[in-house]
Write a protein that binds this DNA or RNA. Structure first.
Lengths: 119, 119
DNA sequence: CTCTAAGCCTAGCCTTTCTAGGTATGAGCC
DNA sequence: GGCTCATACCTAGAAAGGCTAGGCTTAGAG
């Protein structure tokens, strides 16, 4: 599950240049080192959502007899891409802090109820 | 929105010791530096979900005339906490790579259609 | 002719999260 | 006594996002 980060990632890819849906899937797979291998059923609706929100604009093109719908960031889309990246850094740092506390707790009390808890 | 990372974060907190729901909310707020301020309606269902899944176990305790439901990791919960952390690192690194590409693209082609795209 | 890759699409399901309500106790204040 | 606040639990239902699973077309290879 991409868990709500899909939009930000799509915007990030489009911030490096226009792309079509199928190419976007490949770009995400490549840039993520193979971690993100998204089904079309995730990406296409996301693009439509972003277009409805005015963050991307699309146009048709034809390459090698095949039609493509090419997406590009709008001005607010470019701004949104920046925002999403900032939000990600903040979110990521926060998660890291929470996980980080556990790094030192490996030698803590073993699983089970301490305290006044009774099972 | 916590976007699917809630379970991992809850498990991470419980990996440092047993806690009750209300205390968990405070722990997440504190450890995240105030970034995570979760409503009870998110945390309580999450705990119940984790208990149904066998990752945490609960017991009642009474402190200062108030009853508390104290949650603690089970053995598989402890394993799951580790897994979630590993998954997070991988996910986080992948997102970072995708966002990272854009770092250098700020001077790229301005927003708009390059290529053969027509609006 | 068949199969694969490139390309697009959507309906409906499932899961997670949040909103918005409810209940109860203890403590401090007037 | 009555008020409010912090502590502490709970759930129903809405909203949103992503995925499954289908469907469509053209080009090219075998």
């Amino acid at each position: 599950m991409m868990r709500g980060h899909l939009d930000g990632l799509v915007l990030a890819v489009l911030a490096t240049g226009p792309s079509h849906g199928y190419g976007l899937i490949e770009a995400l797979r490549d840039r993520s080192g193979g971690v993100f291998d998204l089904p079309e059923g995730s990406v296409y609706p996301a693009l439509h959502r972003l277009e409805r929100a005015g963050l991307v604009a699309s146009g048709w093109s034809e390459v090698g007899g095949r039609r493509r719908r090419v997406y590009s960031l709008t001005v607010s889309g470019r701004r949104a891409a920046e925002e999403r990246r900032t939000e990600w850094r903040s979110f990521s740092a926060a998660v890291e802090r929470v996980f980080g506390v556990g790094d030192r707790a490996e030698a803590g009390p073993a699983a089970g109820f301490a305290d006044g808890a009774a099972v």
